[in-house]
Structure formats: C-alpha cells, structure tokens
C-alpha cells in the first residue's frame, strides 16, 4: 500500500483561505519516515491550520497532499489510520476515565487486542498507573500524557503535534522528548509546532519557518543551534512582534 521509496508526506502548494482571509499561500514540504520537521512561526501564522489540513480535519483551498505517494483522501479510513494528531486541546471526554477514553478510541479504530495495546501505550507515555476516575480530575501533566496516548494508540506512521509540550513539567518534557525520538527512530515521521525551542530540538531533524503564508527559510537542525533558532525567530518576526506589543 505504501511505497517505501516515496516520502511519507508530500505537500505541494497548499493554500487555505476559502471562507476567510488567505492564511496559507502555497506551502511545499516533504517528510520522510524517521524525520522530524519543526515548524516555527508566530501565533496566527497558520501553523495550526496547516496541521489541521494535514490531519484531514479541514479542506485546503488549493494544493495537494500525498501520503506515501498516494493522494491523501481524508474520507479514506486507511489514510486516517496512518495519522496521529495532538492539538492543544485534549480531544478527550473529561467525564470518562483515562482507560475508558482509550477503549473508545480503540473501538473506533477497530484495534485488535485492544486491552493489551492500551496498557502498552500507557506504559509508553508513563501513565500505567492511570487512575479509574474521570479525566477531569487529572493533573495537567497526566492529561497531556493521556492526550498523547490517544494519538499513539493506533500506531500512526505520521505524527502531527501541535504544541505537544504545553503544560508539561521539565520531567514530563524530557520523557516526551525521549519517547518522540524513540518513535522517530522506529520509523515514524513527526511534524510539530512549538514555541519551546530548546526542548523539541532533539526530536527534530529539520526546521522550517512559516511567514506570510509560506515557508521562507529552513534547513537541517544541525545548522540551527538553539541560540540561532531564537535569533532567527526574532529577526524574522521582529516587526510583527514589535507592532503587537505596541497594540
């Protein structure tokens, strides 16, 4: 089904703006297995929109997305099985317990031997002790781990992570970081956005800056030490930040 010679994800000329302002004006990028692409840009630059389009939650105004060399069709269940999505919201039912949430996800994805897989994923995110009470009562860190567990449950080949570090304490970030590195070396492709540049650097193999609806700069992560990432970020978006702070 998937051609290994083809990149996991191939995006060409993605535009978005029907029914509103033109936020994305032609995004081209490609992501192979075992690659981690760090997408940078200020708030409102369209990072989340791009991730939502790639997750099949939103239709692009133009351009093409290919998964493993085939045109991406969000209505195709097989395509959806290959995508794991984490947003700044938990995407969980806070009135159910952690395991109940995962059981529901397993049911929707028709995951074989669901009970085993659930325990496996819980161990992976360091939440094997998750209590059988409503998610509402969990701490922020527990919630974030559970969010991740939900996204990983069906073993997606492509992980789309929108600010996955939010709300985690330093220990949690460290753990998430090593989990992501592990998944990536096991063959997953990761596309993520974040503002916490220092923490996600080990996950990434490449970085790209989004500005004015296009990817304007990027390269291998080695070319961008943390200080350079920060200074480039500030240079690229200087005027904007200035104006926003004035406003």
């Amino acid at each position: 089904m998937t051609d290994p010679a083809q990149p996991l994800l191939q995006v060409a000329g993605i535009q978005c703006g029907y029914g509103g302002p033109q936020v994305l004006k032609g995004i081209d990028l490609s992501l192979s297995a075992r690659e981690g692409l760090l997408l940078l840009g200020p708030n409102g630059a369209g990072k989340s929109t791009l991730l939502r389009i790639l997750a099949g939650l939103q239709k692009p105004g133009g351009g093409t997305v290919a998964l493993g060399g085939r045109p991406f069709r969000p209505e195709d269940p097989d395509h959806r099985r290959r995508i794991g999505f984490v947003s700044h919201e938990s995407l969980l039912y806070h009135g159910l317990s952690g395991r109940e949430n995962l059981r529901f996800t397993a049911e929707l994805f028709a995951i074989p031997r669901a009970a085993e897989r659930i325990e496996e994923v819980l161990r992976l995110v360091g939440l094997e002790w998750v209590p059988e009470r409503a998610v509402r009562t969990y701490s922020r860190g527990m919630l974030q781990r559970l969010t991740l567990a939900r996204a990983l449950l069906h073993r997606p080949a492509l992980l789309l992570l929108d600010e996955p570090m939010t709300g985690l304490d330093p220990a949690g970030r460290k753990q998430l970081e090593s989990l992501m590195v592990e998944l990536r070396s096991a063959g997953a492709g990761i596309l993520m956005t974040t503002h916490e540049l220092a923490y996600v650097r080990p996950i990434a193999t490449r970085v790209a800056f989004l500005k004015g609806g296009k990817l304007v700069e990027g390269g291998a992560v080695e070319e961008y030490p943390v200080e350079r990432l920060e200074s480039r970020f500030l240079e690229l978006y200087a005027k904007r930040t200035e104006r926003e702070s004035r406003a």
Binding site: G17, G20, P21, Q22, G44, Y237, A238, K239
Partner: peptide, 12 residues
C-alpha cells in the same frame, strides 16, 4: 475588505 484587513495585519 476582510482579505485586505488580514494582509495589513500580517504585513511585516
């Protein structure tokens, strides 16, 4: 108008 307004906001 909405598009122009957005462009204006996004301009560096």
């Amino acid at each position: 108008r909405d598009q122009l307004r957005y462009e204006l906001d996004a301009r560096e």
